[in-house]
Write a protein that binds this DNA or RNA. Structure first.
Length: 801
RNA sequence: GGGGAUGUGGUGGAACUGGUAGACACGCUUGGCUUAGAACCAAGUGCCGAAAGGUGUGGGGGUUCGACUCCCUCCAUCCCUACCA
């Protein structure tokens, strides 16, 4: 009972129903098949899928389906990054429980994912806000503490004095709280940190072995930022010391001032009895600035009364407090070398500080290395040589040393929020006790109807345990939740252990797919977590994600789709109008996965049209079931060749290149290449045989991208239940790929002047002769002497005159 | 400021290893079908030029017989920058 017209909604529902009934995509351990764990970054449940999700998940599904057809045992799970700010904001705004808000969002987004036909194993679904998820996160935290990877440290947060809450960077707009409008203050509070810096060297060195895009590898390397520099002590005139960090110790004779961070203990100390310094530090610390804002901010400094001795020269240097010196990098103290550092130069110009050149160069400032000048005994040495010698000198005289330094900082995981995973700590008269398995999970308090969530610190019922005991009121950074979810999927249904023997079978993730915006933070935190989990005996292996595919953004009119720009396009509208297969096809056809994708309301029509043409071609036909003919005409052979060529190309595009757009284009070409006679009622047996080959290959090749129409038509076409269709990939015939002639390009001085069909076994001398006889080539050559002939086999010949 | 990308017709993109630039689509134009429209089918379509031909991959320079591809330099746009996820 075939349908007359292509009705995507109808056939997609039918096919999805059959997948559900057969549990088609439930992943079970296999001893015979090779495993393939394909993971797409799980979404934050904001309520609706956006185009970025549709693209990300289509890529993951296409690869999963293709791998399944190639005989792999595929695990493709899906879950929810369910804690986070938006739920809390929505809850406060609408006086609803963040949990029910989140659950509702999950429910509707899950329906959308199912409607798109993604082949997820839903039996392994995880939600980070589920106690059966975060219980294990809390347990891992305690184990990390036992391993010595957790510590407590004071650090600064943005404080909204009106709302009495800590604000995220994005909630601070022009120094004011986004909701209250109050001027944001900086507040120093105790927070939990994970010692990711203990793994800095390993995180850096093991990047090399990852099958990741080079740009992501570079970003991570630069973020970790290992540098070789020097620590050098400057004696204060009161005999105390200031220790500075520099990567350019060769410029030591060019130092004309010392600058310390406003957050350096000495600066803080000076502030206690100096109102001017106190005021200046407050000004520098008015808000917690993002690194980008910090770089743009005007350089500000204040000269203190302190002076230090230059360790190599008979001079005293002023100590400044400067806003561009970061407490978190190096020692929080820098030696100011205006001639050879751009920031120091700008600062020196502004405050009329001396600029002293010590490395040869035509103009200042110059950060290039070179030959030292005016540097006492080091004069004439090259920078790198001088660095070595000066470091030796420092060490010998006990005034410093050469050291390794990392830009990477430890990971602060405390958040002063409600909707997050509670940090599993209890304080006994202020002393932290880390809760173990029997006391876990620590759950969030329930919220009554019509009430908004309050910070846990305001919920006495939650934190006050009596007899001097209190609960930790901070929750985890949501990056903690997403740092190990890839592992939990493999043991999602286990409520006795965080991970189990299945985890060892499935891990590591063979292919991880997600947005490039996660190139640094999420991916680095996950790598750290995997190594830390390895060291507490939870997982094998050193890395969580073997291969990475970073997908580009979805743009509209050249800009990232965002609510603030008002250029979002709701995918649901197009799913309703054209069906899942069309939108999946469009996503794959329009751009290669790594590049940004420009959304177009009209271009998607083209994908729909293509599927309608497929429908029109196949829906009334039946499989060719007679014996294969013995003889083929030239035209027939040409089509067969095209079929096998296309299959070869598509296989390569899927398996090696992740180049789905070109795969689709070549399938379109194949269909365009079918001569009309093959499709007519008068078609010969041989023609029908060739057409059948095109149809079978096409349905198979399209199946990963447009699984519904492909499977539906396959069942109808072959009069079968199609049970093997999604588990087998066709093979091309090498013999049919051989060609008899080729098109020769004839160039003169690199410009194309003619083309000739040449049979494949023609000798080069004969090719030269034939080329020169080409009318147009003859005209251009005009009997001039030929200086050189370049022949590229079976491709082109170039005459240089 | 630092780090990482991207730039090819009116539009999305192709050219995989330095070897025919513009595959495959969208749009547009013309024609067919139709009372008309939609849908569908056929042909054409980088730019300049009547044609011959010239020219063309963000701008400028270089290497090469030959450059979208390699090198230098400049410009524009985007992503990340540690509490958005």
């Amino acid at each position: 009972m075939s349908l007359k017209e292509y009705n995507p909604e109808k056939i997609e529902n039918l096919i999805q129903e059959s997948w559900k009934q057969n549990n088609s995509y439930e992943a079970v351990i296999s001893k015979t098949k090779e495993k393939f764990y394909c993971l797409s970054m799980f979404p934050y449940p904001s309520g609706k899928l956006h185009m970025g999700h549709v693209r990300n998940y289509t890529i993951g599904d296409v690869i999963s389906r293709f791998k399944r057809m190639q005989g792999f045992n595929v695990l493709q799970p899906m879950g929810w990054d369910a804690f986070g700010l938006p739920a809390e904001n929505a809850a406060i705004q609408n006086k609803v429980d963040p949990q029910s808000w989140t659950e509702q969002n999950i429910e509707s987004m899950k329906l959308q994912l199912e409607r798109l036909g993604f082949s997820y194993d839903w039996s392994k679904e995880v939600k980070t806000c589920d106690p059966n998820y975060f219980k294990w996160e809390q347990e891992i935290f305690t184990k990390l503490q036992q391993k010595g990877l957790v510590y407590r440290k004071k650090s600064l947060v943005n404080w909204d004095p009106v709302d009495e809450t800590v604000l995220a960077n994005e909630q601070v707009i022009d120094g004011k709280g986004w909701r209250s409008g109050a001027t944001v203050e900086l507040k120093e509070i105790d927070q939990w940190f994970l010692k990711i810096t203990d793994y800095a060297d390993e995180l850096l060195s093991s990047i090399e072995n990852l099958d990741w895009p080079d740009n992501v590898k570079s970003m991570q390397k630069n973020w970790i930022g290992k540098s070789f520099g020097s620590e050098i002590k400057f004696k204060l005139l009161n005999n105390k010391e200031l220790c500075a960090f520099t990567t350019r110790i060769d410029t030591i004779y060019g130092v004309t001032f010392i600058a310390i961070s406003p957050n350096h203990p000495i600066a803080q100390n000076l502030a206690t009895d100096n109102p001017e310094i106190d005021e200046f530090i407050k000004q520098c610390n008015s808000t917690k600035m993002a690194e980008a804002d910090m770089a743009k901010a005007e350089k500000l400094g204040l000269k203190t009364s302190l002076k230090v001795r230059h360790p190599f020269a008979d001079i005293n240097l002023d100590v400044w407090i400067a806003n561009y010196v970061l407490m978190d990098y190096g020692t929080g103290v820098i030696m100011g070398v205006p001639a050879h550092d751009e920031r120091d130069y700008e600062f020196a110009k502004k405050y009329n500080i001396e600029i002293k050149q010590v490395v040869e160069s035509d103009e200042l400032p110059s950060t290039n290395k070179g030959i030292l000048i005016d540097s006492d005994i080091f004069t004439g040495q090259e920078s790198n040589e001088a660095i070595k010698n000066i470091n030796n000198y420092l060490e010998k005289n006990n005034i410093g040393k050469g050291i390794e330094n990392f830009r990477l900082r430890d990971w602060g995981v405390s958040r002063q929020r409600f909707w997050g995973c509670p940090i599993p700590v209890v304080y006994d008269n202020g002393k932290p006790i880390f809760l173990e398995n029997k006391d876990l999970p620590v759950e969030l308090p329930k919220i009554k109807d019509g009430e908004s969530p309050r910070p846990l610190s305001q919920n006495k019922d939650f934190f006050d345990l009596g007899s001097g005991k209190t609960r930790e009121v901070d929750t985890f950074d949501t990056f903690v939740d997403s740092s190990w979810y890839y592992a939990r999927f493999t043991a999602a249904d286990n409520n006795k252990k965080a991970l189990d023997e299945n985890s060892n079978y499935w891990l590591p993730v063979d292919l991880y797919i997600g947005g490039i915006e996660h190139a640094i933070l999420h991916l680095l935190y996950s790598r750290f977590f995997h190594k830390a989990m390895r060291d507490i005996g939870l997982v094998d292996g050193d890395e969580p994600f073997k291969k990475l595919l970073t997908q580009g953004m979805v743009l509209k009119d050249g800009f990232k789709m965002s609510k603030s720009k008002g250029n979002t396009v709701d995918p649901q509208k197009f799913i309703d109008k054209y069906g899942a297969d069309t939108i999946r096809l469009y996503m794959m056809f329009t751009s290669p996965p790594e590049q940004s994708l420009e959304w177009s309301d009209t271009a998607i029509e083209g994908s729909y049209r293509f599927l309608k043409r497929i429908w029109a071609l196949i829906s009334d036909r039946k499989v060719y079931s007679k014996e294969s003919p013995n003889n083929f005409t030239k035209v027939e052979l040409k089509l067969r060749q095209k079929s096998h060529q296309t299959l070869k190309k598509v296989t390569n595009d899927y398996a090696q290149r992740n180049s789905f757009n070109t795969a689709v284009a070549s399938i379109m070409e194949l269909l365009n290449a079918i001569p009309d006679s093959f499709k007519s009622n008068q078609a010969t047996e041989a023609e029908l045989f060739c057409l059948d080959e095109v149809i079978q290959f096409t349905l198979k090749m399209l199946s990963p991208i447009t699984p519904h129409i492909s499977l539906y038509l396959w069942k109808e076409y072959t009069d079968s239940d199609g049970h093997d269709f999604e588990n087998s990939w066709p093979k091309y015939n090498e013999d049919l790929l051989k060609v008899e002639d080729f098109q020769l390009i004839i160039q003169v001085n690199g410009k194309v002047r003619g083309k000739e069909h040449i049979s494949i076994d023609t000798e080069q001398t004969e090719i030269e002769r034939l080329s020169k006889e080409n009318e147009n080539v003859k005209k251009v050559l005009a009997n001039q002497p030929i200086k050189k002939v370049i022949y590229v086999k079976e491709k082109l010949i170039n005459f240089v005159i």
